[in-house]
């Protein structure tokens, strides 16, 4: 059974006079120990999807349809106190900007130890011991001395390690990482990616990795979901998605990565205003393959036949998918 099964998730934002749908009928599953990348640009709904799972949405947002099955429980119907015992304990989350989840007034050690005391009711001494252990695990140099330092004494990369330590302290089965390497330098990004990969294997962790960067997702994840304008475009193994994409948007994203000596195609146009989504396929105004049907009907999800037995499906929402045998 899937660890996480998001079904038809729909999130609406109430902006006073108007409203917009930030996530529209998004479904995907995540098996235990699996790494799924959610790929998308601004306004794709990837962050809102992650926050819906944590039930940490902006007060103006509401889950209007759908289910989020986590380990047999529907997170959509849990009350706040039930969510509190799930967050941090069974689902950890890491954000893009580590300072937003660290309190500048406490030492980083106290903050992580607090997670142990709160969720696992450990004694001070035990919490401290486990915190230092966790710091070693995330490869903070000199873990023992780090315990008594304040967040501002750390570089961005080190802070991100601290927030990873806090998120994994109670041994959750799922880690949600929202663009954890976007704010750091390339060499630090590589450190954090390889750390996350290692922790995922060692702790048998399911990873939901949110990013705008295809290469990063390809590095860390075995499966990927591509979002555009609040809707799911394509889900499948990273291998299938990045080498033989069926959806033109995914193809456009791949072609947006500059390659020396090759003309850069990219995707023409800009994303629509979420308050006035286009009819039919959301991507049709920017799609080179769009035909009248695309303007009219929302494409159903199609499952491409599995090439090898046991392969999980490659699913895409497109009336005129690209040929899978290319390249």
């Amino acid at each position: 059974m899937a660890l996480l099964d998001v079904r038809n998730l729909t999130v609406d934002f109430d902006l006073g006079a108007e409203s917009l749908r930030a996530v529209d009928d998004v479904s995907f599953t995540l098996e235990p120990g699996e790494a799924l990348g959610i790929v998308g640009e601004s306004g794709s709904g990837k962050t809102v999807t992650a926050l819906s799972i944590m039930r940490l949405l902006d007060p103006r947002a509401r889950i209007t349809h759908g289910r989020i099955w986590f380990d047999g429980q529907d997170l959509v119907t849990q009350d706040e106190s039930a969510m509190e015992s799930i967050r941090g304990r069974r689902i950890g989350m890491v954000f893009q900007e580590p300072m937003t989840s660290l309190n500048p007034g406490y030492t980083v050690g106290e903050q992580v130890a607090e997670v142990y005391r709160h969720h696992l009711r450990l004694s001070h001494a035990e919490a401290r011991r486990r915190t230092i252990e966790m710091f070693e695990r995330v490869k903070l140099p000199g873990a023992r001395e780090m315990f008594n330092k304040y967040p501002h004494e750390f570089s961005g990369g080190m802070r991100q390690r601290v927030t990873i330590a806090a998120a994994l302290a109670c041994g959750p089965s799922l880690l949600i990482a929202d663009e954890p390497t976007t704010a750091v330098d390339v060499t630090i990004q590589a450190q954090i990616l390889s750390l996350l990969g290692q922790l995922q294997r060692d702790m048998d962790l399911a990873l939901l990795f949110i990013s705008h960067d295809l290469a990063v997702v390809s590095e860390l994840c075995t499966r990927a979901a591509v979002l555009y304008g609040a809707r799911l475009m394509e889900v499948g193994s990273t291998d299938a998605i990045f080498t033989a994409p069926r959806h033109p948007y995914t193809d456009g994203l791949i072609n947006s990565i500059p390659q020396r000596g090759q003309p850069l195609q990219g995707v023409p146009g800009t994303i629509f205003d979420l308050r006035t989504p286009p009819p039919g396929c959301r991507f049709h105004p920017r799609c080179a393959h769009a035909r009248p049907l695309c303007h009219r009907d929302v494409p159903e999800f199609t499952r491409s036949p599995a090439n090898t037995p046991g392969e999980r499906g490659h699913v895409y929402a497109c009336h005129y998918p690209l040929d899978s045998s290319r390249g």
């Binding site: 934002f13 601004s42 306004g43 794709s44 663009e179 976007t182 205003d273 308050r275």
Partner: peptide, 17 residues
């Protein structure tokens, strides 16, 4: 790029005048 839920609004910003 999608740092917080507020970004939904900024993603919608381009043509909103």
């Amino acid at each position: 790029m999608n740092a917080n839920p507020m970004d939904v609004a900024s993603g919608a910003e381009p043509t909103a005048a």
